[in-house]
Amino acid sequence: MGSYRWNWPILLADPYYGWIVSGFGNTCLIAVLAWSIAFPLGSAIGIARTTELRPLRLVGTIYVEVFRNIPLLAQMFLWYFVVPELLPQDWGHWVKRDMPYPQFLTSVLCLGLYTASRVAEQVRSGLEAIPRGQHHAGLAMGLTPAQVYRYVRLPVAYRIIIPSLTSDFLGVFKNSSLALTIGVLELTSQARQIEEYTFAAFEAFATATLLYCAVTGIVILAMRQVERRTRIPGTIAIGAQ
């Protein structure tokens, strides 16, 4: 890069510094909000797929297959451009005219629902890794099936899948960059905007990359702590093998 003119200080100048901060803030916010849809919804669907109730299992399977197999980018466009047209007229109007932050909320919803299908698969595999005898032991002492999930199966299943849930959370964090396709000013799109205004492409994208990496590192370290704290005494990190 012999002729590249480095210009790091530009990133601290007005308004570019603010763009990076707000882009980073939006990225984090999208990821956290999407995860707070994905985690409970995905857990519920994963549980549904392991129950004895056939209709529930079917609903769970359909959900996972649909959301996992449509490319995420296509889902983003479907939610933003197509779904409002399919809604009943008043709702469609509301979504298109009055809903606040339409791009932002649409991308949160889209990422949340997509990630839920991944969480569901993790939760299901965690539950299925638990021997059936545990379920029987819980029932035999008078717990209801719901209580067996609550006190016996889920606490162990979540411990098993901490590593894969961590990568799903990082996935939603990275996938949040797709929100730029419908016009959300998150980190990647702010970096692109800075590049357009200042030609400091390398600086802008390097900063964005560093921020993504920093969050990834922090999340991994934090989840290791969670893993350590919840490790079952006497066992060697279950699930990690």
Binding site: G133, H136, L139, G142, V156, I232, T235
Partner: peptide, 30 residues
């Protein structure tokens, strides 16, 4: 079932609970 105790070949203690917590669980919840 709460009135009938059952003991299994593979013990089936709940691995994430101490011995005491295993014995407490159904007393508290059932």
């Amino acid at each position: 079932r709460a009135r009938i105790g059952m003991v299994f070949q593979n013990f089936e203690l709940f691995p994430h609970m101490s011995a005491a917590a295993n014995i407490n669980l159904a007393q508290l919840k059932v």
